[in-house]
Design a protein around this nucleic acid. Structure first.
Length: 501
RNA sequence: GCUCCAUUAGCAUAGUGGCUAGUGCAUCCGACUUUCUAUCGGAAGACAAGGGUUCGAUUCCCUUAUGGAGUACCA
């Protein structure tokens, strides 16, 4: 109870962090902050063959972009460092030795080839090869060998691993904060390798040792670790350490089909799986998502507040979060919902801020300087943002505010451009030229008055007007548009259309 | 195969031993804007199956089915 909450996110630097990992980090972060605790980043790079250059920086950058920075970890050394397992290498051997001297672990000299053969053999018989109590005495290890034989092998420099000696006929009571209590029979467990022949610990050993040394209070990780919980619990018991609390998060599933979300799904289905771009796959950032939206949708993937609230700021998430409300079953990823979240955040962002994000896009399009003024862009944004999901949508929704249409929608022309249209628009031009107060409301009143006075139908005037101003049948209220582009430009566009259509 | 976990509409989920099972996304229909991919309003749509326990079960128990994870000197 009195123990300080310390949680860790412990990814392996084998590639870009995908959103499943980001969500695990997020839940750890939320839990830590909710309880005034620390959020630690530890790099689990015990498998040197899978190390990928740049992955570690990527993880740090991704966390920062999401706004969930760690308190302690690589580059932010606290008193529990180093935070990279490869730099802690010298630490682990003594713990493996301790287990051996306690009789909780043993040396094994079996080669991977012989083990693979055993597995294959069992498979052809429809069985599973398990290295444990029922066959360990028939295999090549210090339990089957005499003390002398074992030391001889060790002294000769034979390659060995250290395996955990899983006890026989015991029932393990396991506790998970999300799933409740479980019971496991040790007879079905195998003697997992704790220490590899390359001198590195496996995940299991390093994980337990580090969590203990770093005084981790709660282990919050993905469900793929649930089957390992039995081993981990036994390891804590074997060391006579107090185990942290465990919580296993449900997996994030593919949007369609079976199985958990993988890095490949993004490319295949056309949505980002990475927070930032990685190896040619665009990330949420590059696709134009706001980090707030990403955090928000990720939080609701496998967790819910128990109310109908769906929009949460990070602070609100910290307030509302609890492990008890995390779901037990997998959460299917829904890209439409993530877009919905982003659309929401676009609407919440002020017109000024959005204009600032939009101006660089316009500059790239070589828009003339007078239309790049913040006040002008802000006005445009206020009209069109309603239907935008991303800032990147702004250009398509608003190009006609910046450049006159160079072509007109084919279908729209066919439907709206009738024989009498040029004549009507010519008259409209003279009406417009006489308006002095070119505000949206005033222009609208005058034009509508003119239509009724001349017994013209709205359908013969309004749609063609929209067509010549916008270039297609789209956009916000037409009088709002012409008020912004101005009288001169409005007249010019009408004339241009009459001449060219 | 074995072990563990799960199962409310197309998807994500809320909720309850007993009143019309709530919400969001998607869908369909209407309204508005004499444009729309927007907005507003409305509609349709679910407790996996079978067996118990119970006066009564979507809710508790068992079985089956389906889905998921793990089963490496990977994490």
């Amino acid at each position: 109870m009195s123990k300080k909450v310390r949680v860790r996110f412990a990814p392996s630097p084998t590639g870009g962090l995908h959103i499943g990992g980001v969500r695990t980090a997020l839940f750890n972060y939320l839990f830590a902050k909710k309880h005034g605790g620390d959020f630690i980043l530890r790099i689990e790079d015990t498998d040197q063959t899978r190390y990928v250059e740049g992955a570690e920086d990527y993880i740090v950058n991704a966390l920062n972009w999401c706004g969930i920075p760690f308190d302690e970890g690589v580059g932010k050394e606290g008193k529990f460092g180093p935070y990279r397992q490869s730099e802690r290498k010298s630490l682990y051997k003594q713990y493996a030795d301790e287990l051996i001297s306690k009789g909780k672990a043993y040396y094994a000299f079996d080669t991977s080839e012989s083990l693979n053969n055993h597995r294959k053999e069992h498979e052809t018989k429809g069985k599973t090869f398990i290295y444990n109590w029922h066959n360990r005495l028939r295999l090549d290890n210090s339990l089957a060998l005499s003390k002398e034989e074992t030391t001889a092998k060790l002294d000769a420099g034979d390659a060995y691993v250290i395996r955990f000696k899983t006890p026989q006929d015991e029932k393990l009571a396991l506790k998970d904060l999300i799933r409740g209590n479980m019971e496991i029979d040790t007879n079905i467990l195998d003697d997992k390798v704790l220490f590899k022949s390359d001198g590195m610990p496996t995940y299991h050993l390093a994980n337990i040792v580090d969590d203990h040394l770093m005084e981790i209070s709660h282990v919050i990780r993905g469900e793929e670790w649930l089957p390992s919980l039995a081993l981990h619990q036994q390891l804590y018991d074997a060391f006579e350490w107090q185990a942290p609390e465990f919580a296993h998060l449900p997996l994030i599933m593919k949007p369609v089909g079976k199985g958990k979300l993988s890095k490949r799904d993004g490319d295949k289905l056309g949505f980002p799986v990475f927070p930032l771009s990685w190896n040619g796959s665009l990330g949420y950032k590059e696709e134009g998502y706001f980090p707030e939206a990403v955090v928000n949708f990720l939080a609701l993937l496998g967790w819910n507040p128990g109310t109908e609230q769906e929009i949460f700021s990070l602070e609100e998430l910290v307030q509302s979060f609890s492990l008890e409300r995390v779901n037990k079953s997998g959460a299917r990823f829904d890209i439409e919902k993530t877009k919905w979240y982003n659309q929401h955040y676009v609407q919440q962002t002020s017109d000024e801020q959005l204009a600032n994000l939009f101006i660089p896009v316009l500059e790239e399009k070589k828009i003339s300087a007078d239309k790049l003024a913040a006040t002008y862009v802000t006005k445009v944004v206020s009209l069109i943002k309603e239907r935008a999901v991303f800032v990147a949508d702004f250009w398509n929704l608003s190009d006609y505010f910046f450049v006159a249409p160079t072509s007109y929608g084919e279908k729209a022309v066919k439907k709206q451009w009738k024989e009498g249209t040029p004549e009507i628009l010519n008259q409209l031009v003279s009406v417009i030229e006489n308006i002095s107060d070119f505000s949206s409301n005033n222009t609208e009143t005058i034009v509508k008055q003119w239509i009724t006075d001349n017994e013209l139908s709205f359908g013969k005037v309004m749609p063609p007007l929209r067509l010549v101003i916008v270039g297609d049948m789209k956009g916000p209220h037409i009088f709002d548009i012409i008020a912004i582009i101005g009288k001169e430009e409005t007249v010019a566009r009408i004339k241009k259309a009459i001449a060219s259509l």
